[in-house]
């Protein structure tokens, strides 16, 4: 489980960084999205995931809070997702404006000659 999660974060993050370095705005925004997925998973994993732990309620009792996952990283992820979504949408608008003004989708306005 840990290995799968670590690999997922690594691959998402690596692809994100690679795309971030590319000269097209579309690649840039996809790169940022992939990176934010990687970061969200990372935050999630910082809450230490107990595998196979009991849910909050146990049969016939309240359950022990020590047994279930830390809820704070989850709420952090939620906030991060919302903010990331909003900023991505905003960035998309700027990209479209740049496309309209410069006539190209290069991050510097026009590709170097």
């Amino acid at each position: 489980m840990e290995l799968i999660l670590a690999l997922a974060i690594g691959i998402l993050g690596g692809s994100g960084v690679w795309l971030l370095m590319r000269p097209r705005t579309f690649q840039l925004i996809i790169g940022l999205s992939l990176l934010s997925y990687a970061v969200n998973l990372f935050i999630f994993s910082m809450g230490r995931f107990p595998v196979g732990a009991a849910p909050i309620l146990e049969a016939g009792g309240k359950g022990d809070p020590a047994h279930f996952a830390d809820p704070l990283p989850q709420s952090l992820v939620l906030t991060a997702i919302v903010i990331g979504f909003a900023t991505t949408a905003l960035f998309l608008v700027v990209m479209l404006a740049a496309r309209g003004l410069t006539g190209g989708d290069h991050v510097d306005g026009r590709p170097p000659r």
Binding site: T25, L32, L90, F91, V94, M95, A97, L101, V107, G109
Partner: peptide
């Protein structure tokens, strides 16, 4: 818009 694009991606 050009400067803003760089600024926004950097800060994101």
């Amino acid at each position: 818009v050009k400067a803003g694009l760089h600024y926004i991606s950097m800060n994101l």
